[in-house]
């Protein structure tokens, strides 16, 4: 699936919740519960995404020019939020991730149900993922 296709699917799924705040937050937590926990040994200071109020640990690896992310959080809602980003970005190339335009947050009215602080944290997660993409891209360019 392309990044816009995944985003559209997410928008469709959220529209079923009909703007019910409580159901939406429960749904996000449920998504978080489905995301596998990372190993305790990976919950390091180095893997922490800076700028989030909750703790978010994130790692990335490159396989066949595609990036795969793993992440975890100490709060259920944040874990659900990062799971959405993983769903969108996993298996995409560094270039595609770097150029991706994320519009689903606005469409599902994310700021309304997670508040400004968490929205800032969410932006920090996206920045971190794009940063990984840039690092992999640069690594490849230097190698070639």
């Amino acid at each position: 699936m392309s990044i816009p296709q995944t985003q559209d699917a997410i928008i469709d799924e959220f529209s079923l919740l009909d703007g019910d705040m409580e159901m939406t937050v429960f749904y996000i937590m449920e998504l978080g519960q489905k995301l596998p926990d990372i190993k305790e040994s990976d919950r390091t200071e180095d893997n922490i995404v800076k700028g989030c109020q909750s703790k978010v640990w994130m790692m990335a690896r490159l396989e066949n020019d595609k990036i795969y992310f793993e992440a975890d959080s100490n709060t259920a809602i944040t874990k659900g939020l990062v799971s959405l980003l993983i769903r969108i970005f996993n298996g995409q190339s560094p270039d595609v991730i770097l150029n991706a335009d994320l519009y689903f947050m606005k469409k599902i009215g994310m700021e309304r149900f997670i508040g400004t602080q968490r929205s800032n944290g969410f932006a920090a997660m996206i920045k971190q993922m794009k940063f990984y993409a840039l690092a992999f891209k640069t690594q490849k360019e230097i190698a070639s």
């Binding site: 705040m21 100490n74 709060t75 149900f113």
Partner: peptide
């Protein structure tokens, strides 16, 4: 086992 942020956020929806 439940983070206080999650509790606060859930209560806010109500």
């Amino acid at each position: 086992g439940i983070h206080h942020f999650d509790i606060g956020q859930m209560l806010d929806t109500r």
